[in-house]
Amino acid sequence: MAVQFERDRPRLRAVAYRILGSLSEADDALQDAWLRADRADTTAVENPSGWLTTVVARVCLNMLRARDARREEELDTSDRGPARPSPDPEEEALLTDSVGLALLVVLDTLGPAERLAFVLHDMFDVPFDEIAAMLDKTPAAARQLASRARRRVRGVPAPEADLPRRRRAVDAYLAATRGGDFDALVALLHPDVVLRADAAVVPTPEPFTVTGVARVARGAMASMGRARFADVVLVDGHVGMAMIENGRLRVVLRFAFADDADGGLITGIDLIAEPARLRELELAVPDA
């Protein structure tokens, strides 16, 4: 089994990362899974790879459920405590790119059972009868969980007159922020642009508002580091952005636009970081 575990380690790590969204937590899950596997009697195991996948998935499910319990506590305080350190930020960035940051953002909004069913079936072709055993549900119930998760991941875009242009504008906003291109960012903003941020964004004692192109652009430049882990998503059906930290959704940006007669520039940016407000949003992965 030790030989099999090392042979399967890349796949098992990929499973754990997609379920948990955090490289450090994925590595913790693999360590815990190996300790369980090493103590277990595996003489009757006919499919070692499948059995190891089940062990890793069960460990990840327990971690997701514990995370959900902590998330409830976050609703009562803006103090998240210190961020969980990543073992290798460059490696995590590469893994994030391979999965798709927007998908990781949306996965973080799913319940543990939905997320497990979707990841195992849609990404790793694990049969529903095996998923059902992990969740103590019937195969039909596991299939329904994955289907519900799939619908939430895809979402339904709002009927906007110019969705493609707004998608391009938000793509350009993200590119300018990541690249520190102040002039390109200014070109996307309306002269009367207004940025509103809730108290959890900085954090500050109260929500705050910033007006004017230069001040809003400078504020965006200050988030260059965060922008590396941001992507375009659908926010309540409209084009927006989301940022994650160690696999957890942290900030969502909602954009308002001028009409075509005024150039379709960005007129408003709403930064949302309070856990209760984030919970109310419907996020989805936009079409490529």
Rank of each mutant, 00 (worst) to 15 (best):
D41H: 12
L23N: 03
A29Y: 06
T53G: 06
D41K: 13
A26D: 05
A40G: 04
I19C: 11
D41R: 14
V45G: 07
D32I: 15
L12A: 03
A44D: 12
D41C: 10
L20V: 09
T43E: 14
A33M: 04
R36N: 09
V15W: 01
S49N: 05
L12F: 03
A16V: 07
Y17H: 11
A40Y: 03
L35M: 13
L12E: 01
L23G: 01
L12Y: 00
I19R: 04
A29V: 10
A26Q: 06
N47W: 12
A16C: 07
T42G: 05
Y17C: 02
E25Y: 03
L30V: 10
T43A: 15
D41Y: 13
L12H: 01
A37Y: 11
R13L: 15
A33K: 00
N47F: 12
D27V: 04
P48C: 05
W51Q: 05
A14M: 08
L20P: 05
A44G: 07
Y17L: 11
L30A: 06
E25M: 11
D32Q: 12
R13M: 09
R39P: 01
L23R: 11
V45N: 08
T42M: 12
L35R: 13
R39W: 06
E25P: 00
T53A: 06
E46Q: 14
L35H: 07
W51D: 06
D32F: 04
L23F: 08
E46V: 14
A37V: 13
D41G: 08
A26G: 07
T53W: 00
A26C: 09
D28V: 09
L23Y: 10
D38P: 00
D41A: 14
W34H: 02
N47I: 07
D38H: 08
T42D: 11
R13T: 04
D38C: 04
T42A: 12
E46L: 15
A14V: 06
A44N: 09
L20E: 07
R13E: 14
E46N: 10
L35F: 06
W34C: 00
A37H: 11
R13G: 05
T43G: 08
I19T: 11
L20S: 05
A33W: 01
G21W: 02
L12C: 07
R13F: 00
T53L: 13
P48H: 02
A29D: 09
L52M: 15
V15T: 03
P48R: 02
S22L: 09
R13P: 01
L30G: 04
A33N: 01
Q31W: 10
V15C: 01
D41W: 14
A40C: 06
D38V: 08
R13W: 00
Q31T: 15
A26P: 07
V45M: 11
Q31Y: 09
T53I: 11
S49Y: 02
